[in-house]
């Protein structure tokens, strides 16, 4: 005699079989003690599971949930600070970018581009001189020799160093911004049943 497969027995108890298949199982069970015992074993398990008691909830979950529901500000002070730094670094990077091709030997393309920015040394010198002229009510900036002029580096090298620093600054800030943990739960949309 062929016994009922595990799958059929489970589907029979779950009432997942059509009428004909269920009828066939009924007939087999009437004459097979082995399959009847297997079915009774599963039935006992079902009953034991159904008898598991409810566990009492010992605290109110509402305050915790409501606290997490309150809208969080889109940008905290820390985030704004990071964004400001990233923006500054990006601006420096853009200002310096036109000097980098000197080292990368990209030919005349860059220098022939319209609206080319001034040489980096000229730019920094002008900025330094401008800053030196700023006068506050009781403080005057001393006129000092620009320190980078004494390093012996040419403008492309200075640009490369500053651009690399700025690039690292941008990347670092973006990494810090991304580190902010997302809201709990996954993003799978819960469809209504």
């Amino acid at each position: 005699m062929n016994h009922i497969t595990e799958e059929l027995l489970n589907e029979y108890l779950d009432q997942a079989l059509d009428q004909a298949a269920a009828g066939s199982i009924d007939r087999h069970l009437q004459s097979c003690r082995v399959c009847t015992a297997r079915m009774q074993g599963l039935q006992r398990l079902f009953e034991e599971l159904a008898a598991l008691p409810e566990e009492p909830l010992t605290r109110d979950l509402a305050p915790g949930i409501l606290a997490r529901l309150r809208p969080q500000p889109a940008f905290s002070f820390g985030k704004l600070l990071l964004l400001g730094q990233a923006g500054t670094a990006l601006t420096i990077l853009v200002l310096l970018a036109h000097n980098i091709p000197d080292n990368l030997n990209l030919g005349g393309f860059w220098h022939n581009a319209p609206g080319k920015l001034p040489d980096i040394q000229t730019f920094l010198l002008q900025a330094w001189l401008l800053a030196s002229r700023i006068q506050l009510p009781s403080v005057e900036f001393p006129t000092l020799p620009a320190p980078w002029l004494q390093t012996g580096l040419d403008s492309s090298s200075i640009s490369l160093i500053l651009a690399s620093t700025a690039a690292l600054w941008v990347v670092g800030n973006l990494l810090l911004l991304n580190k902010t943990p997302p809201a709990s739960g996954n993003t799978r949309h819960e469809k209504s049943s």
């Binding site: 979950l61 949930i65 997490r68 529901l69 809201a183 709990s184 739960g185 819960e190 209504s192 049943s193």
Partner: peptide, 22 residues
């Protein structure tokens, strides 16, 4: 308890999709 809290937060996020006849 944590999972129950997360369940409610997720439910509130998607409650607009919930079929109110169910």
């Amino acid at each position: 308890e944590d999972a129950a809290q997360d369940t409610f937060l997720r439910a509130f996020r998607f409650i607009k999709n919930f079929d109110r006849t169910r």
